[in-house]
Structure formats: structure tokens, C-alpha cells
Amino acid sequence: TLKEIGDQEANIAALKQAIKDKEAPMKVAQTRLYDRSFRPNVELCRDETQFRLISEVERLTESIESLKKKLLESEQALRNLEDTRMNLEKEIAVKTNSIFIDRQKCMAHRKHYPVVFRLAGYQ
């Protein structure tokens, strides 16, 4: 479980870095698209460059949204793993305490009891 938690944390860090890496090209594409919309003394046109810029912005937007969705899923999986780890640690603590009670407290009393054959009269 600890290994899976570590892997998931590394996955989350990689997804955050990927989202961050996509933001710079997105800003560039959006700026170019915006600048094409407000060119002074030039007629606005829908040419191949305009279409490519629009498709690039759409692709980057879809990519970022996909990464954000995966990030949310990974964070939820990490929370689930941490909950599982906490439950396992609680169970281990209870079982350790049970073994301690059995070995340290009960075993001392059991050693002093006579065996079943002795109680039955079969010495």
C-alpha cells in the first residue's frame, strides 16, 4: 500500500507538471489568435492560419481538461489509498494489542492451570 501511495504521489506530481507545461503553449496560441482578431488596417479573414490557431487552441484545451480530469481521479485514488492505509494500521494495532494481551497476560494464568487429563483424573 505504501508503494502504491508513493507511485500515486509521483503520478500526481507528473500530471501537475504536464498541466503546467501545457499552459505556456496555450497562452501563446491564445495570444496569437487574439492579436489576429485586432489587426489595425487589415481586413479580418478566416484563412488557413486562423483555422490552425483555432484548432490548436481547441486541442490544447482538450488536452488540459483531460489532464485535469486524470489529476482529480488520481487525487481521489490517493485519498482512498491513504484511507486504506489508516484502516490497515488500526487493524494491525488492534491485533498487536490482542497478541500482547494473549501472550503477556493470559499465558501466565494458563501455565498455572492443570491440564485436561489431570482434571479428568487420568494422571
Rank of each mutant, 00 (worst) to 15 (best):
T1W: 05
T1Y: 07
E4W: 06
E4T: 09
E4Q: 15
I5P: 04
G6N: 14
A10Y: 05
N11H: 11
N11P: 00
A13Y: 11
A13H: 14
A14C: 06
A14N: 11
I19P: 03
K20C: 04
K20P: 05
D21K: 03
D21W: 04
K22G: 13
K22N: 13
E23M: 15
E23N: 13
P25K: 09
P25Q: 11
P25A: 11
M26V: 09
V28Q: 15
V28W: 02
A29N: 10
A29V: 12
A29G: 07
Q30L: 12
Q30E: 15
T31W: 07
L33P: 02
L33R: 10
Y34K: 14
R36M: 14
S37R: 09
S37L: 10
F38R: 15
F38T: 14
R39S: 06
R39N: 07
E43P: 09
L44I: 06
C45I: 15
R46Q: 09
R46G: 01
R46C: 09
D47R: 12
E48L: 10
T49K: 15
Q50M: 11
Q50R: 07
L53P: 03
I54Q: 10
S55C: 02
E56N: 06
V57N: 06
V57T: 08
L60C: 07
E62A: 14
I64V: 13
S66R: 14
K68H: 05
K69V: 08
K69H: 09
K70L: 04
L72Y: 03
E73M: 04
Q76Y: 05
A77M: 05
A77Q: 08
L78V: 02
L78N: 01
R79L: 05
N80G: 10
N80L: 09
L81W: 04
L81M: 06
E82K: 08
E82F: 00
T84D: 13
T84E: 15
R85P: 00
R85A: 13
M86S: 12
M86E: 01
E89Q: 10
E89F: 07
E89S: 08
K90Y: 12
K90V: 11
I92E: 12
I92L: 10
A93I: 02
V94Q: 07
K95M: 07
T96L: 11
N97C: 00
I99P: 00
F100T: 09
I101Q: 10
R103T: 06
Q104I: 07
H109G: 02
H112E: 14
Y113V: 02
Y113P: 00
Y113F: 09
P114R: 12
P114N: 08
P114C: 02
P114I: 02
P114A: 04
V115Q: 08
V116C: 01
V116P: 01
F117E: 11
R118F: 01
R118D: 01
R118K: 12
L119T: 02
L119H: 02
A120V: 07
G121H: 01
Y122M: 09
Y122A: 04
Y122Q: 03
Q123C: 00
